[in-house]
């Protein structure tokens, strides 16, 4: 559960892939702090989060709890591309007919550890959620997605989807997916998928055969890969900004 009341360690399920050294060196106040948002009934809240590789703390843990009122819509799009440890956590409760849209990208090399942790509670009927996470890692870096979906007893007609794909550009990189479904209603659609792979060599050769140099070809493929996480951004300029911002963090050496 996201609600560890004591100082978290990697023995806690939700922190199992996290950075033990960072947890040990950081105060409980910082790790257990939650930012609270509410989305009023029928309202839309869109948030764009980018934690890039500029000068910053060794680790970042950001946790946000959101209550979405009836028919409301929460959209969060996030890129984690920096830190040695970066964790972005969302705990979302949906009232009747509310929607939660999440698109997340982790992107990093070295020994970076970047993770999204979400908990979505479908507390009333007809709420929907859609989460798409794409991880691009190289070096000895790791990208994780821990996604928990809870559907309470009366939350009929829930439609919850979760999709995670990781692209490992080098052999030492890794990714972990941990979907968890806890469903107490019977008329519910829950879809989740996870896949971990490398760039498609056939596609790279096809692009090269048309004249694209290898680095350009790989960049184009990575762009297409992470674009999945941002397709639901309705503002074209914002979508481009998120995409280009993430791509700029790609290490040429890894391509």
């Amino acid at each position: 559960m996201s609600d560890v009341l004591t100082h978290p360690t990697t023995r806690d399920e939700d922190w199992r892939y996290s950075d033990a050294e960072y947890l040990a060196s950081t105060s409980s106040d910082e790790l257990l702090h939650w930012t609270e948002w509410t989305v009023a009934p029928g309202e839309v809240k869109s948030e764009y989060v980018t934690l890039l590789s500029g000068p910053q703390a060794r680790g970042t843990v950001q946790r946000t709890r959101v209550h979405v009122g009836k028919g409301g819509r929460l959209e969060v799009f996030a890129t984690l591309a920096g830190g040695q440890y970066q964790r972005y956590e969302l705990d979302v409760t949906l009232e009747e007919g509310a929607h939660f849209e999440f698109g997340g990208v982790t992107l990093g090399g070295d020994v970076k550890l970047q993770e999204f942790v979400t908990r979505v509670v479908h507390a009333e009927p007809n709420a929907t959620s859609n989460q798409t996470v794409r991880a691009v890692q190289w070096g000895k870096a790791t990208g994780n997605f821990l996604g928990r979906i809870e559907v309470v007893r009366d939350a009929q007609k829930t439609d919850a989807a979760q999709n995670f794909r990781a692209l490992l550009l080098e052999k030492g990189a890794s990714a972990n997916a941990k979907p968890e479904l806890e469903i107490f209603a019977d008329d519910v659609k829950c879809a989740h998928g996870a896949a971990i792979g490398a760039l498609d060599e056939q596609a790279l050769f096809y692009l090269a055969s048309r004249g694209l140099p290898p680095v350009e070809a790989r960049k184009l493929m990575v762009r297409a890969f992470i674009a999945d996480a941002f397709v639901e951004i309705s503002d074209d300029a914002m979508r481009d900004q998120m995409l280009e911002g993430a791509l700029a963090e790609l290490d040429q050496g890894a391509l």
């Binding site: 498609d200 056939q202 596609a203 050769f205 096809y206 692009l207 048309r210 004249g211 694209l212 350009e216 184009l220 493929m221 762009r223 297409a224 890969f225 674009a227 999945d228």
Partner: peptide, 17 residues
């Protein structure tokens, strides 16, 4: 011919050319 999801024909061809 290889299928490449997410990469548009015109975009890649212009870059390639």
């Amino acid at each position: 011919p290889v299928e490449i999801p997410g990469v548009s024909n015109v975009q890649f061809l212009r870059e390639a050319l």
